[in-house]
Write a protein that binds this DNA or RNA. Structure first.
Length: 345
DNA sequence: CATTCGTGGCT
DNA sequence: TAGCCAAGAAT
């Protein structure tokens, strides 16, 4: 694109220079480039996650691990505990792998192509880091850009089929210079002006460019394919107490909640109910039900409690002091169960 | 290309 | 309130 004054990118950047949000991972105005480590960390945390949810985690991570080498030196379980509650835990597992890879490389690669090879960086994040941290021209497409571009060009084809068209259109309006600022400007616009519901078209710097606004109702875009309904699964979690400690295990594999500390359960999963089989033969007290909705299914999880004197044979885990349960790094589902248990006394 | 991955906030 | 949605990646 040319840098002429009357382009979409020029109008957007002019708006951004005045209205950019101040965010912890952005370089202060006037400072050269943001720290690639902070850009990468924030971008991974922000995948499918709101700015408000990310802020406290970003603060915690950067205080504890100020550099990518610090993070690479951290035990994986420490990172998983620190990530607990943020969701999509494959991000945390890949974060550790990526930090090690970057340490080995002696720093972050600076091109989109090389960044794409790192674990946890897909098309979006590789482009975002290349543009924001290294000043490369890259076509950055996230959910905000999809919404803004769908409206700008009144794209009638529904997502996700329209992704190819959206990429081409985004490429067409991405400037050669300040591609990183352009990407962040699109996100700020999508966050505050070109919102999903009730877009603030009167305040939009691109209103004169917007085909959707010209023709009909911008809120109609992007058109989306209908969603599938979520099945409801039944399951059980088991609270086993001994001498003021509760039995916790670590979920194996790369599947749901993999690598996260948890209560023993009866094998419930996205595809089916649990079998109701308790981990030990004991007197179980029914404490209540925890309802939790994941991305693709809902779970009604019974919480059962018992006390035992013996050890647990044939199981891998640890006795965790009940008084310190908040430090165990339980994902939210099991944190809810723990809350229920403690509330019952 | 479709599915599997969390969670909290919003309306 | 029940559903919708958010700076997506991996398979």
């Amino acid at each position: 694109m040319t840098a002429s004054k009357d382009t979409i990118s020029a109008r957007l950047l002019e708006w951004y220079d005045v209205h950019a949000r101040t965010l912890p991972w952005r370089a202060p105005p006037g400072e050269s480039s943001p720290d690639p480590y902070r850009v990468w960390l924030s971008e991974v945390m922000l995948q499918q996650t709101t700015v408000a949810a990310v802020k406290p985690y970003f603060a915690k991570f950067t205080e504890r691990w100020p550099t990518v080498d610090d993070l690479a030196a951290a035990p994986e379980q420490d990172v998983m505990v620190a990530w607990a509650g943020l969701g999509y835990y494959s991000r945390a597992r890949n974060l550790v792998k990526c930090a090690a890879a970057v340490k080995k490389l002696g720093g972050f690669p600076e091109t989109e192509e090389e960044l794409l090879k790192l674990p946890g960086l897909g098309a979006y994040t590789a482009a975002a880091v290349a543009a924001i941290a290294f000043g490369q021209r890259a076509v950055v497409v996230d959910a905000n850009v999809e919404r803004v571009v769908s409206r700008l060009f009144a794209i009638e084809e529904p997502l996700p089929g329209s992704r190819k068209t959206i990429r081409v259109k985004t490429d067409g309006i991405t400037p050669d210079r300040r591609a990183g600022d352009f990407a962040q400007a699109m996100m700020d616009l999508g966050s505050g002006i070109c919102t999903t519901r009730d877009p603030k078209c009167l305040l939009c710097p691109l209103s004169s460019d917007c085909q959707a606004l010209k023709n009909d109702n911008p809120a109609r875009f992007p058109i989306k394919a209908p969603k599938k309904i979520k099945p409801v699964r039944q399951g059980t979690a088991y609270w086993i107490e001994r001498d003021g400690a509760v039995w916790l295990e670590i979920r194996q594999g790369t599947g749901m909640l993999g690598g996260m500390r948890s209560l023993p359960d009866d094998g419930w999963h996205s595809g089916g109910d649990g079998d109701g089989a308790a981990p030990v033969d004991a007197d179980w007290e029914q404490l209540g039900l925890v309802r939790h909705t994941f991305t693709h299914f809902s779970l009604e999880m019974s919480v059962l409690r018992t006390s035992i004197q013996s050890d647990l044979a044939e199981r891998i885990g640890q006795w965790w002091p009940v008084a310190e349960i908040d430090d165990a790094g339980l994902p939210t589902l099991f944190a809810k169960a723990a809350r229920l248990v403690l509330a019952r006394g």
